[in-house]
């Protein structure tokens, strides 16, 4: 019906889907929600949503994001970005792949623990954040930042 899509027509794609409500996922969701953005957060365990701030105004969905069923409820046409931040690299890859291949989401970001897996993502065109590499760089910076720079 037209009245339901009027919102998306006006502002284009606005919604961010975050998969995995861990510390990182919850923090991202909170800050987006506080900025007034549309946020959907998915986690397989409903207890994880406790990490969200009480002011979180987005949608919480309990379910396994590697199953297509979870996305049925969502208006995926309205989703601009998907962020996969579960604690499993393989799940993150899978979710990112679903988002890219099945729903053609423009911006897909995944967190991965194992830097060796980065090549998989690069082939798929998925942006990655790797805490190990980030931390390594930062430690390097702290150790030698003054001298090498």
């Amino acid at each position: 019906m037209s009245i339901f899509s009027s919102n998306s027509k006006k502002t284009g794609k606005t919604c961010t889907v975050i998969v995995g409500c861990g510390r990182l996922g919850a923090n991202i969701a909170d800050s987006l929600s506080e900025a007034g953005k549309d946020v959907v957060i998915i986690d397989s365990n409903s207890d994880s949503f406790r990490k969200l701030s009480p002011m979180f105004g987005g949608m919480k969905i309990t379910g396994d994001a590697t199953e297509m069923l979870v996305f049925n409820d969502l208006d995926m046409k309205n989703v601009s970005s998907v962020i996969a931040v579960t604690n499993h690299d393989n799940t993150n890859i899978m979710v990112a792949q679903i988002a890219r291949e099945m729903f053609h989401i423009d911006k897909v970001i995944a967190r991965l623990y194992d830097p060796a897996r980065e090549c998989v993502y690069r082939e798929l065109g998925i942006d990655t954040i790797c805490p190990v590499i980030l931390s390594t760089n930062e430690v390097d910076n702290l150790l030698f930042g003054g001298t090498t720079a």
């Binding site: 961010t16 007034g36 549309d38 946020v39 959907v40 105004g57 987005g58 949608m59």
Partner: peptide, 8 residues
Amino acid sequence: QLKPSLRG
């Protein structure tokens, strides 16, 4: 919650 934001 029907929409991803409270306002929606």
